[in-house]
């Protein structure tokens, strides 16, 4: 098996997490609860299956590692991009851009930078200050005024809890805390204050996780209610569904999707209550050579998006 194809990506971590879970199931020791997932990532599994990054046009990504820690990336994109408009019809203009990136990845320091030909710059830093405390920074600079963003996060990881404090430009402050209550259940909350818009809010989240399923729920004082459920049918297949409800605008959307991770490819598909269908296929042609096909159909808006791409390295 190993001689023919590179072994499956998921097999080893899945086994590892399974043994970890069974170990905790034996006795419910409330002093030794597992560390929960970060608050902003509680919908991780559902998002992975239901929100593939569909695109329209051609995409080519090339990553070249110069040595163990340093790598350069080049990517080309060509195709129509949507511009936001007030009318119901979507307006698309053809664009093409090239992106140059540099990555430095070390066990406790990660630096990632991206520059686009239209002048946008994106920089990310993740630095583990100690074993428990990590600093994350994210900056997005553009040449348009008031469109640049910056954000700094401090993450503290305890034995069975995580907390985070974040600061951003526009006087944005936020804090979140998540705690494991039982080996499967974790509960969390967040507060935020956006000084520029004079808004503040509070939110709560819960996540129930076994090795067969993950269910999450989140409410926030902005009126947002998000529920998601992921069922792992087998090691290769998982089915996901989610429901988003906005109390302020009375909008409800829900979607169902599947996620197949096979040895040669990964295929994700979803359909949502607005009648929007999307599929995303990543096919491994060779070691380090991936072919990507993306499709999205919205019959109501008559918006059809198809894209293909190649990822090298």
């Amino acid at each position: 098996m190993a001689g023919l194809v590179p072994p499956g990506i998921t097999t080893i971590p899945a086994d590892a997490s399974k043994t970890a879970h069974t170990k905790h199931e034996e006795k419910t020791d409330y002093m030794n609860l597992p560390c929960p997932i970060p608050y902003e990532e509680i919908h991780r599994e559902a998002l992975m299956s239901l929100k593939p990054e569909t695109f329209e046009g051609l995409r080519f990504d090339f990553t070249k590692g110069l040595n163990q820690k340093f790598s350069l990336s080049h990517s080309v994109f060509m195709g129509p991009t949507e511009i936001p408009s007030q009318s119901a019809e979507t307006i698309k203009i053809p664009t093409a851009h090239y992106e140059f990136g540099a990555n430095f990845i070390d066990p406790n320091l990660m630096l990632i930078g991206r520059v686009l030909t239209d002048g946008r710059l994106n920089a990310r830093v993740k630095w583990d200050l100690t074993d428990n405390l990590a600093l994350k920074a994210n900056a997005q600079l553009t040449n348009e005024p008031h469109m640049s963003h910056g954000m700094v996060n401090f993450d503290y990881k305890g034995k069975d809890y995580r907390s985070q404090f974040q600061m951003g430009n526009g006087a944005l402050f936020g804090a979140s805390y998540i705690q494991s209550v039982t080996p499967h259940l974790s509960l969390g909350g967040e507060v935020f204050w956006a000084g520029q818009h004079r808004k503040s809010g509070i939110g709560y989240a819960a996540r129930y996780e076994t090795d067969k399923m993950v269910a999450t729920g989140q409410v926030a004082s902005t009126g947002m209610v998000a529920l998601s459920y992921v069922q792992k049918v087998s090691e290769k297949v998982s089915l996901a569904s989610d429901l988003m409800y906005n109390y302020m605008s009375r909008e409800v959307t829900s979607s169902v999707g599947y996620d197949y991770i096979l040895r040669q490819c990964r295929l994700r598909g979803k359909i949502d209550s607005n009648g929007c269908t999307a599929a995303y296929l990543e096919e491994r042609l060779n070691m380090g050579l991936n072919f990507v096909l993306s499709a999205e159909i919205d019959h109501r808006k008559k918006d059809y998006k198809f894209g293909f791409g190649l990822t090298v390295g």
């Binding site: 599947y258 197949y260 096979l262 040669q264 490819c265 295929l267 598909g269 359909i271 269908t277 999307a278 599929a279 296929l281 096909l293 499709a295 159909i297 019959h299």
Partner: peptide, 15 residues
């Protein structure tokens, strides 16, 4: 038909 083409046909081929 188009939904089927997008969601199911690639799945069948890959399986």
């Amino acid at each position: 038909g188009t939904t089927f083409l997008i969601l199911v046909v690639p799945l069948i081929i890959e399986m």
